[in-house]
Amino acid sequence: MPHDHHDHVSPSGHPYRADDDTPLSYWQTMEIAVRELLVEKDITTAEEINTQIDAMDARSPAIGAALVARAWCDPEFKTQLLADASAASREMGFDIGPMHLIALENTADTHNIVVCTLCSCYPRNLLGLPPDWYKSRAYRSRTVKEPRKVLSEFGVNLPNSMPIRVHDSTADMRYFVIPMRPDGTEDLSQDALAALVTRDSMIGTGIATAPIT
């Protein structure tokens, strides 16, 4: 086959991903060595490691969405969530592990957005694995300096009169945003409301979606 640009697109229209033929990095080798030693010395087992990976993969933004929807419907719960988000999550039956969680409320006067400039801290136990862009150097470095420009690239254009609070997740706390409840949702059930709460709206790079009318 000729090596023209058609080679890079599969019949389904998606680009082929290049084979992962690079040698292991120092830290990849270290991770494999430590993992194999832990198994060899009966400190853990391959099954336990895989169970933990499955548990982490099973977490999704649905957990956070359920918290937000309840906070929209139950002012007392919202107060609890803002005072101690870890305790409020556990009270609702979510196993968030040892995570220290802070909830941030978007209002007509403030928009919150979360970033981790130092690495890629993310409330994984609440929202599942972070999106790739959250870990990118561009998002991490630009969000603290030009949050308005970053938000506009996500399609969120805020008036200059609306103050932004950027939360840099620098140490032991993890953050999520309670987005504003969309208009016209007064009659929706808590489950229907949860469906409007996107992952990005809980990072602060999006807003809750409007209901389909």
Binding site: V144, K145, P147, N160, R165, V166, D168, A171
Partner: peptide
């Protein structure tokens, strides 16, 4: 003790701030 410290964007980025009254908050020991 771990604190959350609030900064004005104008105090952090000076004239480069998009809006000097935006806030940056971070955890600092």
């Amino acid at each position: 003790m771990l604190y959350r410290v609030r900064f004005r964007a104008g105090d952090v980025w000076d004239k480069d701030a998009e809006n000097p009254d935006d806030m940056i908050e971070a955890e600092i020991y």
